[in-house]
């Protein structure tokens, strides 16, 4: 009950009724931006941060749990990205895969440098939850989906987040956002189409 209330209090802001703006003024690919970062381009670095800050923080939270340490790991990841951008070779793999690897390595390095404080010996029982392979698969899915969400126009992203994670029905979303129920469904469908295009490889 408390969790449901907490979720509803943390709702995304309702988007306006104006027409949906372009996804992003910056149409450069991730690979192009990494190349520019390698040459010291701060604007390209900021654009990559805009696109990937939430995906990086997402996997950091999955690995670390603690919010403060996960935020430190996120900053470490972008510092590492700045330093290592010149090592990205677009002929050897996709930019999003390379960024995923940079993030995972930075998070693991951060855990080694700042090990989680312990107050007592861990219990001698198997860890609950998924095994390493499942966890890695789950991290990758979150990474790709959260990155894909960043490509949506704000109004569509808000609707998706409300529809999937607020606990609201579509009718409640229509009331919250102040648009007709039919428009909510049309925009949600449009958002899922964009996500399908963006996630083409993951759809199998």
């Amino acid at each position: 009950m408390d969790a449901a209330i907490a979720v509803r209090l943390d709702l995304p802001r309702a988007p306006g009724k104006a027409s949906i703006p372009q996804v992003s003024a910056d149409s450069r690919t991730d690979a192009e931006l990494i190349g520019l970062v390698a040459a010291g381009d701060h604007r390209a670095f900021e654009e990559l941060h805009r696109r990937y800050a939430r995906p990086v923080l997402g996997i950091a939270l999955r690995r670390i749990g603690d919010r403060g340490r996960a935020e430190d790991a996120t900053q470490d990841t972008f510092a590492s990205l700045w330093r290592s951008a010149n090592r990205f070779d677009p002929t050897r793999g996709k930019a999003t895969s390379w960024l995923f690897t940079v993030a995972r390595n930075a998070i693991v390095d951060g855990l080694r440098r700042r090990p989680e404080p312990t107050v007592e010996a861990p219990p001698d029982v198997p860890e609950p939850g998924p095994g390493p392979d499942d966890a890695a698969e789950s991290e990758w899915v979150s990474w790709r989906v959260h990155r894909a969400l960043e490509t949506l126009p704000d109004q569509e992203r808000t609707l998706v987040e409300l529809a999937y994670w607020s606990g609201f029905s579509q009718s409640e979303i229509a009331d919250h956002v102040g648009i007709p129920l039919g428009t909510v469904k049309t925009r949600t469908r449009s958002a899922l189409r964009r996500l399908a295009d963006e996630l083409g490889d993951e759809l199998g």
Binding site: D10, R54, P55, L57, G58, L61, S138, V141, S142, R144, V145, H146, L149, V160, E161, Y164, W165, L192, L195, A196, L199, E202, L203, G204
Partner: peptide, 14 residues
Amino acid sequence: RVHTLLEQAGPPPS
């Protein structure tokens, strides 16, 4: 399939 991936991924952090 997108719907399933969204449910698997969970909400992105703020």
